[in-house]
Simulated assay, not measured.
Amino acid sequence: MGLLELFILAVGLSMDAFAVSVCKGLSVKKMEPKHALICGAYFGGFQALMPALGYLLGSQFESMITQIDHWIAFVLLGIIGSSMIKESREDEEEEVSASFDVKTMLALAVATSIDALAVGVTFAFLHVNIVWAVTFIGCTTFVLSAIGVKAGNVFGMKYKSRAELAGGVILILMGIKILLEHLGFLG
């Protein structure tokens, strides 16, 4: 997996965290730098941790499912991407607490990074350099989450659904690319 592909994947994975960060930005009357840093640290940290855990799990079972690993990656990314697209189409506004306490942020960080766990499993099958990948994903999510808090505070809900839609499409396209590569249709 090249740098461009990893960047695109990192952006796709971070869209849930970005969307929640936008909502957190909406929830504060006066945005302070600590709000952006808190969101960035929690969301970026968990977006880095979850693929690492998924990678460790996937590595344990790699020998048993090497023949179908590309199909697993395709299905997992397709499900995650489809779910994000579905969420982007829902009209109901997500209620996000204005609190930045540990309990609230921990729950949000876990909820927005579950999809990264599944991606980590696919990393094991694709023999991705996991240290580089999780660092890149974590840093990308940190930056986008910090930007999301500011954007939410300034622009509101206008771009939340578009971010989720873009993230879902990116993940589905990555899954298709992985499948086509393993079937011999791409380089």
Rank of each mutant, 00 (worst) to 15 (best):
G2S: 13
L4N: 04
A10F: 10
A10R: 08
A10W: 11
A10G: 11
G12A: 13
G12M: 07
G12E: 04
L13H: 01
S14M: 12
S14P: 06
M15K: 04
M15G: 08
D16M: 12
A17T: 11
A19G: 06
V20L: 12
S21I: 15
S21W: 12
S21G: 15
C23E: 11
S27G: 13
V28I: 14
V28C: 09
K29T: 05
K30H: 11
P33H: 09
K34W: 13
L37K: 07
L37H: 03
I38E: 01
C39A: 15
C39M: 12
G40C: 09
A41P: 01
Q47D: 04
Q47K: 10
A48V: 05
M50A: 05
M50V: 03
P51S: 03
P51T: 01
P51N: 03
G54R: 11
L56W: 07
G58H: 06
S59N: 08
S59D: 01
E62G: 01
S63C: 01
I65F: 15
I65L: 14
I65V: 14
I65D: 00
Q67M: 08
I68Y: 14
I68R: 05
H70I: 09
I72T: 06
I72P: 01
A73Y: 08
A73E: 01
A73K: 10
V75I: 15
L77P: 02
L77E: 01
L77F: 13
G78H: 10
I79S: 02
I79T: 05
I80S: 09
S82M: 15
M84K: 09
I85N: 09
K86G: 00
E92N: 09
E92Q: 05
E94Y: 00
A98T: 05
A98L: 02
S99N: 07
S99W: 04
F100T: 09
D101Y: 14
V102S: 10
K103M: 13
T104L: 06
T104Y: 03
A109L: 07
A109Q: 11
V110R: 11
A111Y: 11
S113H: 09
S113G: 09
I114R: 08
A118V: 03
G120H: 05
G120R: 06
V121P: 01
T122H: 02
F123Q: 00
A124S: 13
L126R: 05
V128D: 01
W132R: 02
W132H: 01
A133N: 03
T135S: 13
T135R: 00
F136I: 05
G138S: 08
C139L: 15
V143L: 14
L144G: 06
S145W: 08
S145D: 07
S145Y: 10
A146M: 13
A146F: 03
G148Y: 07
G148S: 12
V149H: 10
V149A: 14
V149F: 12
K150I: 13
K150Q: 09
V154P: 00
F155M: 13
F155Y: 15
F155W: 15
F155Q: 01
S161H: 00
R162A: 15
E164T: 10
L165P: 02
A166V: 15
G167K: 11
G168T: 06
G168I: 07
I170F: 15
L171H: 05
I172Y: 08
G175L: 09
I178V: 15
I178T: 06
L179R: 07
L180E: 02
E181W: 02
F185H: 10
F185E: 03
F185K: 02
L186D: 02
G187L: 14
G187D: 10
G187Q: 14
G187C: 10
